[in-house]
Design a protein around this nucleic acid. Structure first.
Lengths: 115, 115
DNA sequence: TCTATAATTCGAAATATGTCGAATTATAGA
DNA sequence: TCTATAATTCGACATATTTCGAATTATAGA
């Protein structure tokens, strides 16, 4: 892929994202399933579970899959997009991959419309 | 078009947008040209002009066209998308159509990532 | 090492989006 | 009314995105 770009490393910093990065971010959120994934990860607690609000909520791919009614390969694709845009982190632990929101990026987005 | 939806009337209110509306909003911003249009309208002043910050900056379609290097029909299409998502207002005055940001929607977006 | 589970990559198909030029509509002014 | 300007609609085409199932990779445990 010749024009592959990722915000995963280039963002976040103190520098606000440029237009290219922003388009990527909005593109990542401009899909029903991806927005739902992001919302799930943003809620710090799932119903019926304890929530330590100091920790960032983290959820494995399989758990997300059970809430979404899409094929695993499709979910994998969507997670890659969210990750590429810098919106979420992904970290393998054994057989599972855990996802969590990138709180720095969240802060960046908070400032976006506020300035 | 059977599943045409517009946020132009249904938003903004005090009620936060639902996921469908949000996807529409992000979709509208998830394009190079449309984001640039939105940025132009968000800046209250164009270089070399006076700015009364109490007024919302307004710009006619032709003026936007001169800054964008796309066909008028393409610009028209993009403006329709931004308008449909509820991000901008459009108002004809004589031969020209003036565009401006929907400040209520802007406020809604400010609160989105903040809650 | 072999097996089962978790997740990803790949390739193909269907759908959606971005773009243009030509034709059309809306308006102001001669 | 006729003409020129501003903008939109329409139809066509190219490109991008979404989705799936099949095959593959990564890992833990027997």
């Amino acid at each position: 892929m010749s024009n592959y770009r990722s915000n995963e490393q280039t963002l976040p910093t103190n520098i606000p994202p440029d237009n290219f990065q922003l388009v990527d971010i909005f593109k990542a959120l401009a899909n029903n399933h991806r927005l739902k994934i992001y919302n799930i990860l943003t809620r710090c607690c799932t119903p019926g579970t304890q929530c330590d609000s100091n920790d960032v909520f983290s959820c494995c791919v399989g758990e997300l899959d059970s809430q979404l009614d899409i094929a695993p390969s499709t979910l994998s694709h969507h997670l890659k997009e969210l990750n590429r845009a810098g919106l979420i982190h992904m970290k393998r632990d054994g057989k599972q991959v855990f996802c969590s929101v990138n709180t720095d990026m969240m802060k960046t987005l908070q400032h976006l419309f506020t300035e």
